[in-house]
Design a protein around this nucleic acid. Structure first.
Lengths: 253, 253
DNA sequence: TAGTGGTCTAGACCACATA
DNA sequence: ATGTGGTCTAGACCACTAC
């Protein structure tokens, strides 16, 4: 006897810590409330700061916490549900679109985008950068790629400010035949991170969309959503959308 | 003069390291190839192992690497594209379904699930556990919640093995009016992690689906996909699905 | 038994926000 | 100037796999 295998679970400290903190957040803190700083918390739980941080990192990944350098760690509100279609088959930039155009350049398509569009490598594309703001917070940034061949009517000589809207306007002249989407996990590149008010490398949900017209891919977009604050919704049911209003579906993960 | 602000970028080491490794993976390694171990790599780059690990963690998050304790770090294949509907409005468990039933129990619905279903807290639900295997690899695990009220015809006295399939069969008798979905980032709970052959806390994409029938929510499911190996596809275009076959859409994130 | 990745420590310094 | 989270180090030991 002796080693009767008590407490044999061998759960990592940071995992147990995460559970404890998660419960504490539910019972002892309110949304927006600021937590004690990392050094104090680590001392309070009798662990090294790195271990405490491992737990905080996971909680932030799950959308329970928000950390900001120089400020502190706060309790995050429930994730925002953002609709990612298909509300209907509509071109980007249609009326009541959730996005606003930030800029636009014309350049050769990078290789992965060319593959997405099914065009040759060196094809020129208009690249429209847009952003999506919900409740005052930037939640997504997007690059929309439109081959010049898709918008033949586009006038030359546009001011930079008019370039993006003009591309979208020309796009609307085409008959949208369908879309498809893919969602995957990524980490924010420097530029996206800045726009999303996060540090580079922050976890993001990357939504890749292809727009079909004239029997091929007329445009494609890569949208980058903050994974910590967003829940992407795909409202496929025709009628019953109105019934519910984003109940909190956070899981006890 | 003097401090002419050369190299003022101040890019974190792990971030630069990640870039270097990412490029090396493209040019010097093949899919499935095993990398030098972490201690060697850290020494080679002149950084602490923890710093090297920070870079590897991000690359794994992005699906570029796969690490297994006791084995090593290997170059991951491109992410698998898994279809998450709506290929059509069909009940779970229909023919040609990508899922297989693992088990089923009847119990009170946990609070978040009750909210999802729009039922009372203590309502009894059948909980069907299913799993999804693609190319021999488990990519997702799911819990499907069916209120007993949705399947009134279900016979009592079922063997455990027959319970799940029977629930699905009864469900098919209902008229499916619509579905909606949400996708968010989470971390694998212990049980899901085991089923997905990952460690607890691994990043997962959580897909929450509601099935509407008889003017309400007749069932709901929470599916947990491996975020490192999966790209969730939503094929919304009617006709053009066949044209393409999952080009590699990995971005240079 | 040897070698791998996973966890953990106790420090240090830096970048950033705020007062 | 102070306090916060972010980065980094140089170790140590553990859990797991495979030989």
């Amino acid at each position: 006897m002796g080693t009767t295998q008590l407490e044999a679970v061998q759960e990592p400290k940071y995992w147990h810590l995460k559970t404890v903190l998660n419960d504490a957040l539910d019972s002892e803190f309110e949304v927006g409330e600021i937590l004690p700083n990392e050094r104090d918390l680590a001392a309070r739980f009798g662990v090294a700061r790195a271990t405490l941080r491992q737990a905080l990192e996971q909680l932030e990944l799950e959308g329970r916490l928000q950390r900001r350098r120089g400020v502190g760690t706060t309790v995050a509100p429930p994730r925002i549900g953002v609709s990612v279609g298909p509300s209907a088959n509509v071109w980007p930039g249609a009326v009541r679109d959730a996005w606003s155009t930030v800029g636009c350049v014309e350049a050769a398509a990078p290789a992965p985008i060319a593959a997405l569009l099914g065009t040759g490598r060196e094809e020129a594309v208009h690249t429209v950068r847009r952003e999506r703001v919900v409740q005052g917070q930037p939640v997504a940034t997007e690059l929309l790629y439109v081959p010049t061949a898709s918008v033949p009517g586009l006038s030359a000589l546009l001011t930079p400010a008019e370039h993006g809207p003009a591309v979208l306007r020309e796009l609307h002249a085409l008959d949208l035949e369908g879309e498809d989407r893919a969602v995957e996990l990524g980490s924010a590149r420097a530029e996206d991170a800045r726009q999303l008010d996060r540090l580079p490398g922050a976890p993001v949900l990357v939504v890749t969309t292809r727009y079909y017209a004239q029997g091929g891919v007329a445009a494609a977009s890569v949208a980058t959503y903050r994974a910590d604050t967003c829940r992407l919704t795909f409202g496929d049911s025709g009628a019953l959308e109105v019934l519910h209003d984003q109940p909190d579906t956070r899981r006890a993960s």
